[in-house]
Every structure is written in C-alpha cells, then in structure tokens.
Simulated scan of single mutants.
Amino acid sequence: METARFVSLIAATITMGLVSGLFYGFSVSVMPGLKRTDDRTVIEVMQKINVAILNGWFVLGYIGAFVFTAVAVALHVPDGRRGVLVPLVVALALYIVVMSMTSRVNIPLNNALEKAGPASGIADPAAVRRAFEAPWARANAWRAVLCTVAVGFLAWALVRYGAGS
C-alpha cells in the first residue's frame, strides 16, 4: 500500500506539472505570439492546435492529473496523515476547478472557432477573433495559475509524505 501511495503521489505531481506547463506555455508564448499576427492567422493556427492537441500524450497529462491525484487522495484517506491528505485534497479541488473552466470556457470557445469554418472563408475574421482570443487567453491564464498552485500543493504533499506526516 505504501508503494501505491507514493507512486500515485509522484504520478499526480508529474502529470499536474505537465498540464501546468502546457497552460503556462500558452499564456507566456503561444497567445502573446499570436496576438502579434493578423486575424486569419490566429484563427487558422488555433484551429490547427485544437485538432493537434487531441492526442494520447495530452490525454495522459490532462486526464492523468485528475485520475492520479484522485487515486492519491483515495489511497491516503485510510492512512489518516492529514499533513499529506490536506494538500492532496486542495490540489484535487483546484484541478476540478481547472477542468470545469476548461469544459465551460475553453472547449466551447474552441468549438465555436471550429464552427466558424476555414479562416480563409470567414467574412469577418476580426469578429471571430474578438469572440475567441481574449476570453480564451484569460481562462487559460487562470488555468495556468490554478495548476501551478496545485503543483505546489502536490509538492507540499510529497514533502509531508517524506517526513512521515
């Protein structure tokens, strides 16, 4: 049981770190880079990213962060070490907020962007961009912050686990 607790905690920390890094990367490089381009480029690139990101590696990180953190919580409940359990529960709660934000903001915006059709055929690309870019980037920045804080809580749980509390 100790091995399962430790492995789930490590896997949760790694996968949460991967997702945090993904959201951070978009916040500090992809979206600022796209901000300096024209409307059709933003639409076309984001449409292509939205297709490319749906792959096994993304799913491993995105779903894995939830599954491994939830498993770590479940495995630590019977142990009763509050020093480990409390930061695990906080990390899981933060990630549930991230997943909710993703499903309520980012995914619907991605879907609307896809429904707009090929960038070259959009009559008013500036309007499509306005409807997408700022709300998507704002929600993504929050996802980056919340995931980073969750990684911090998972790191805290690891330290507490190592200390035996």
Rank of each mutant, 00 (worst) to 15 (best):
M1E: 13
E2Q: 15
E2C: 10
T3M: 14
T3S: 14
F6Q: 11
F6D: 10
F6C: 09
S8V: 08
A11W: 08
A11I: 11
T13L: 07
T15Y: 01
T15R: 00
L18V: 14
S20F: 06
L22K: 05
Y24P: 01
G25D: 09
G25L: 13
F26Q: 01
S27M: 04
S27F: 07
S27I: 06
S27L: 06
S29T: 10
S29A: 15
M31P: 00
P32F: 04
P32D: 04
G33T: 09
K35R: 15
R36M: 13
D39G: 05
D39L: 05
R40P: 12
T41P: 02
V42K: 09
V42I: 15
I43E: 04
I43A: 05
E44I: 07
E44C: 08
V45I: 13
M46C: 13
Q47V: 14
I49P: 06
N50K: 13
V51C: 03
A52V: 02
A52I: 01
I53M: 13
N55F: 07
G56A: 06
F58N: 03
V59D: 02
V59C: 00
L60S: 10
I63Q: 07
I63H: 06
I63C: 07
G64Y: 09
F66R: 03
A70S: 08
A70C: 07
V71H: 07
A74K: 09
P78T: 12
D79L: 14
D79T: 14
D79C: 12
G80Y: 08
R81W: 01
V86P: 00
L88S: 02
V90G: 08
V90K: 11
A91I: 04
A93D: 00
I96T: 14
V98N: 05
T102F: 10
L109G: 05
N110F: 09
N110H: 13
N111M: 08
A112N: 12
L113T: 01
E114I: 12
G117V: 03
A123T: 15
P125L: 09
P125G: 07
R129V: 06
R129K: 15
R130G: 07
R130P: 02
A131D: 10
A131S: 11
F132A: 08
F132W: 12
E133I: 15
A134H: 05
P135V: 03
R138H: 12
R138A: 14
N140G: 11
A141K: 11
A144H: 01
V145A: 13
L146I: 08
L146T: 05
C147P: 00
C147L: 08
C147K: 00
T148D: 05
T148E: 06
F153I: 05
F153E: 02
L154S: 09
A157S: 12
L158C: 11
V159H: 03
R160V: 08
G162M: 13
A163L: 14
G164H: 01
G164M: 03
S165H: 12
S165F: 07
